[in-house]
Amino acid sequence: MSGLLPDIRIVRPSDVAAAIAAREQHPQSRFIAGGTDLLVNMRHGLIAPQSLIDISRIDELTTIEMGAAGLRVGSGVTVAALARHPAIARDYRAISQAANAIAGPGHRAMGTVGGNLCLDTRCLFYNQSEWWRQANGFCLKRDGEICHVAPQGKRCHAAFTGDLAPAFLALGAEVEIAGKQGRRRIPLGDIYVEDGLAHLAIAEDDLIVAVHLPPTAAASAYAKVRLRGAVDYPLAGVAVALGVRGDSVASIRIALTGTNSRPFVLGGTDALIGRPLSERSLQQIEQLVQKQARPMRTTIASAHYRRLAAAASARRITAALYAEQSG
């Protein structure tokens, strides 16, 4: 990597309100929880905050509550704690599977739910050391003017690669956000926009406090396509939540990551509800994924492969979830 970290100041607020105030007080600051992605990006010269607001010791952020109203996961819960929670593994399996698929065990012990949901977008031409990027003339996302993935275009195509987001999206999550104007709850999908340069639609001093999931009768699963069995970011990731009544599909929601600049819920799957899941339904799912997934050459694997792999994964886990429930 390229040398030392720049000079920084660490601020340690003891509660959420103090964290928001600190973020406002310190210009060019960032929240830090696990830091597994933030510190690497700082050393690559991709971001250069002057202060880090350490939110890792705020108690409110580190709890998991499960009750009749569903599940509430604090944003500071570590990925490892989420992965080994037995009730989540039972009732919200996609969440467990996604958590277990994130990076390596050391990263999971440090990284948090909020950090994974807000993960910066990634690209072959962006996640490199400063001298690498300089030798390549930098890129649209940082310090440069053109996107090496699509030089004719005007936008950045870096891909969102968080594993938890699709699992939470498929299960209908909402996020609780604390900001200057107090707290609000919005659907998780609303915090993302399709822009590799600025994929988060929340203010810089907004802090995700928790993720809420409604109780669910649907079975869910997450599948991740990557080069190696551990550590790697997804080339494509698919989460499916499928409810079955008798032999008919009662509810279906499919969400993707790794293919676009944001994680998103696949549109058009409502047409599959109310009838048994047939070979034709599975073909329709594959077509929907192939149409809506927009992988670009942001990884060393080809975009075409990632589109096909996303479609095949969606088909495979939907079929498995249906077989499991239709007895």
Binding site: M1, I10, G35, T36, L39, V40, R43, L52, A80, G104, P105, G106, H107, A109, M110, V231
Partner: peptide, 24 residues
């Protein structure tokens, strides 16, 4: 690797194995 990818710098913090090169 000096970037949290290889695990050579793994130490235990409160009994949990973590990479020390991405820890302040």
């Amino acid at each position: 690797c000096d970037g949290g990818e290889c695990g050579a710098c793994t130490v235990l913090i409160d009994d949990e194995a973590v990479p020390s090169c991405i820890t302040l």
